[in-house]
Simulated scan of single mutants.
Amino acid sequence: MVPKITKQKNNALANRARMLVSCPDQPGIVAAVSRFLFDYGANIIQSDQYTMEPAQGGLFFIRIEFDLEDLDNRRQQLKADFSKIAEKFSMEWSITRASRKKRLAILVSKEDHCLLELLWHWQSGDLDAEIAMVISNHNEMRDLVESLGIPYHHIPVTADTKAEAERRHLELVKGNVDAIILARYMQIISPTFIEHFPNKIINIHHSFLPAFVGGKPYAQAHNRGVKIIGATAHYVTEELDGGPIIEQDVQRVSHRDNVDDLKRIGRHIERTVLAKAVNWHVEDRVIVHENKTVVFS
């Protein structure tokens, strides 16, 4: 089974590229980039920019979508020529083809709500990516996933087998996927594994970080008597639940809600927050700077 993506959408993206740029802020950046694309015959479809702390000579960020005739054959020369402008302004930059779908691996444990949300977005064509595989330390969701034509890999994890399980994970994903989604995958990822996918592993944490880091955050929240609970999608780093935040949301709760109520309310927040974050990542809408993100949503 394949997602219902229209032919019109594919045609619209055939010659479309996305440019992400971050550099020290100074006059002339937008003019230089726009002029470069104009001289190439490109048509800018969308442009978003942001300057961080402009009064202190901060950093400049820009995301541009543009159409360029015969993009596939001209993209390498385009990048080579743009590198001269990038050097002048000390840019970190990328140019990617919008028509190239990012390949995702989804890791999941027993709870299925985040996985189901991603699969629904994928089937409807709202998640413009390829789900290359689902990996789980449990076997409950195999039939569902395989019924959609997606490979399912069951790799049990115990304290004694964790290193071997992670080695098998790496064999499956290295060179085969562009990003990894932890859709309530209840295992800690090792620094060695993270090194292979910097800012390409997205986790959903079931609390409004930085509050209630680690395990059982709903129980922690209930014990604290909070009036708002939330969820946080972030890139995974060596610091537990401390990576750059992509998206968050909250909902009010009250003293009448027990831990199970908080979990039920939280599941809805988790699934929508993760879906947004994954969608923004695959559409090249996120720029990471140190431990923060600029998200052109």
Score class of each variant (00 low, 15 high):
Met1Gly: 14
Val2Trp: 07
Lys4Tyr: 13
Lys7Ile: 14
Gln8Asp: 13
Lys9Gln: 12
Asn15Tyr: 05
Arg16Met: 13
Ser22Tyr: 03
Cys23Ala: 10
Cys23Ile: 00
Pro24Arg: 00
Ala31Gly: 10
Phe36Pro: 04
Leu37Arg: 03
Phe38Asn: 09
Gln46Tyr: 14
Thr51Arg: 06
Phe61Glu: 09
Glu65Thr: 08
Asp72Gly: 03
Asn73Cys: 10
Leu78Cys: 10
Ala80Tyr: 05
Ala86Thr: 04
Glu87Met: 00
Ser90Pro: 12
Trp93Asp: 14
Ser94Cys: 13
Ser94Phe: 02
Ile95Arg: 08
Arg97Ala: 14
Ala98Asn: 12
Ser99Gln: 13
Arg100Glu: 15
Lys102Trp: 07
Arg103Gln: 15
Leu104Phe: 03
Leu104Thr: 04
Leu107Glu: 00
Val108Trp: 06
Ser109Ala: 03
Asp112Ala: 11
Glu117Arg: 15
His121Glu: 12
His121Cys: 10
Gln123Leu: 15
Leu127Asp: 02
Asp128Glu: 11
Asp128Ile: 08
Ala129Tyr: 03
Ile131Trp: 00
Met141Gln: 12
Leu144His: 07
Gly149Cys: 06
Tyr152Ala: 07
Tyr152Trp: 12
His154Ile: 06
Val157Asp: 03
Lys162Cys: 13
Ala163Gln: 15
Ala165Gly: 09
His169Val: 01
Leu170Tyr: 14
Leu172Asp: 07
Gly175Asp: 04
Asp178Leu: 06
Ile181Trp: 09
Tyr185Pro: 09
Ile188Ser: 05
Ile201Gln: 01
Ile202Thr: 03
Ile204Arg: 03
Phe212Ala: 04
Val213Asp: 02
Val226Tyr: 00
Lys227Ile: 09
Ile229Thr: 03
Gly230Tyr: 04
His234Ala: 04
Thr237Tyr: 04
Leu240Asp: 12
Asp241Thr: 05
Gly242Ser: 13
Gly243Asn: 00
Ile245Pro: 04
Glu247Ser: 00
Ser254Pro: 00
Ile265Val: 15
Gly266Lys: 03
Arg267Thr: 08
Arg267Ala: 08
His268Ala: 13
His268Ile: 08
Thr272Met: 04
Ala277Leu: 00
Ala277Trp: 01
Trp280His: 14
Val282Met: 10
Glu283Arg: 09
Val286Phe: 05
Ile287Pro: 05
Glu290Cys: 02
Val294Asn: 01
